[in-house]
């Protein structure tokens, strides 16, 4: 059981659809926000591929979400990610940057882009967690209302740095998402 408060939801209970929704919120337009937040980089044209994976975290009550984007004009994929960590009665939402997880783990995860370069509106993020994902509740043992995601738990209960693919889509499916 994750180390969480009674009145918040276990991050391990997020469904695959909810994880996809969270990624859609963070990367609107199927990842089309990337070019607008990067300095001194050429615009990355069209996103033609997206893969969302959940990777076990080294923290209890935490998930790493790794997102891979492929672009129409780039041979190299962009791999980025974030952590959603339950912290008593709150959640920390943090970029999987070298500064946060260290250079070695950053490389082990295969991440090549620091997610902290993105703009995340603080109220919108809170509202997404509160309204869409129902991460906070008033009832005692609120977390018991949400069963754990079996795919997530299977990966977390296995040893090693496995992961499971929540979604893998190629264009034109991405366009339907955005």
């Amino acid at each position: 059981m994750a180390a969480i408060g009674n009145n918040i939801r276990d991050v391990y209970s997020l469904t695959n659809e909810e994880i996809i929704g969270l990624v859609d919120f963070i990367f609107p337009d199927g990842g089309g926000n990337m070019e607008t937040v990067m300095y001194n980089r050429k615009a990355m044209k069209v996103v033609i591929y997206r893969k969302i994976e959940i990777v076990p975290s080294f923290d209890e009550g935490s998930i790493f979400c790794r997102v891979t984007f492929g672009f129409s004009d780039e041979s190299k994929s962009l791999v980025t990610g974030f952590e959603l960590l339950s912290n008593l009665d709150d959640y920390c939402f943090t970029s999987l940057s070298k500064a946060y997880i260290g250079d070695a783990y950053f490389k082990k995860l295969g991440i090549n882009f620091d997610f902290s370069a993105f703009n995340i509106e603080i109220r919108a993020l809170y509202k997404h967690l509160e309204d869409n994902l129902k991460m906070w509740g008033d009832e005692f043992a609120y977390y018991e209302q949400f069963p754990q995601n079996p795919e997530m738990m299977k990966v977390f209960n296995s040893k090693g740095l496995g992961s499971y693919i929540v979604q893998e889509v190629h264009s034109p499916v991405i366009e339907q998402i955005s």
Partner: peptide
Amino acid sequence: ARYTADFVNPLNITSNFAGIDQPVREVY
């Protein structure tokens, strides 16, 4: 990761703020 060296270097930054986790609800 976010800004150019021309912008960042004069600040003499030694710690990356992105490495500091922030509680979503408390901050909001």
